[in-house]
Amino acid sequence: MMTPATIEAAELTLERAGESIPPRVRARRRSTAKLLLLALLAVILLVVISPVIVVVLGSFLNTSFLGLSSEQWVGDGTDANALITFQWFSYVLKLYQPQLLFSFQLAVLSVVVCILIGVPAGYLIARGSFPGRRWLEELLLLPLALPGIAISIALIQAYAVIRGRWYFVLFGHLIYTLPFMARCVAGTLRSFDCAALERAAQSLGAGPWQRFFFVVLPSLRHAITLGALLVFAVSFGEFNVSFLLMTPLTATFPSALYATYTFNSFQVSSAATVVFLAVILPVLALIQWLGGDELSKVEQGA
């Protein structure tokens, strides 16, 4: 058992001892472990990034040169020996435009609904003081641990009547996106003394709505932006739930990806994947740039 006093003492000892240890010895001892870890990181990075690079290259290079596919079907009037071709993109965009559009609308709608419901929900679970608040929080965050396919079957069993309507898919997305927004907001609210700010505003004569809109919301701007980006990314990439909820008319872009993987050539599949990445990567980059360290608290679940 270590008491603060022992730690203090040890720190002092260390400081004194530190003078006598030559700094070079210390640095070298540390660096072997660090080098090993860096090598591990490099291997993991290679595993993560190399397939993505292959896909991006495969989407516009004539891959029969690389020996990856035996022969290539080319459309009318195109040069079969051209090294670079962008025809697969136009093919994918033409064929799967409705799905791309629907997924985009769905993601934007999810963001809007999550701001309308998820932000107050996050406020409630962080600042509310009613019986059962903890249970409500557990319930709100529960879907992150549940298999998507089970949720989609549950939704089908419960609301078979509205199956086939576009908002049925939205239901499924909301179950998985609301926790992200609520967690972002609640996390930020817990990280500073929001109650003190509100009391200060109250003492200056601000009513409850004024306090919410002019004191609480502005301090949540960062959390809401981050949450909205996360919700967009989750919703746009979602496959497990939407694939069973949708009908051919309400198909999402990931399901179009599935269709290309099953029925189309490597080039078409790659082009479709690159289209998907082109939407999702800027969002992910923004999330990284804005989120930084907070991400590790928020980003969990599928």
């Binding site: 990075l45 990931p254 490597f266 992910l284």
Partner: peptide, 19 residues
């Protein structure tokens, strides 16, 4: 780069694996 697969759905990873 390491957090990239976060928003990849399973089918995409399956496809990458096949490639």
């Amino acid at each position: 780069v390491l957090t990239l697969p976060m928003s990849f759905s399973g089918i995409l990873i399956g496809f990458l694996c096949v490639i």
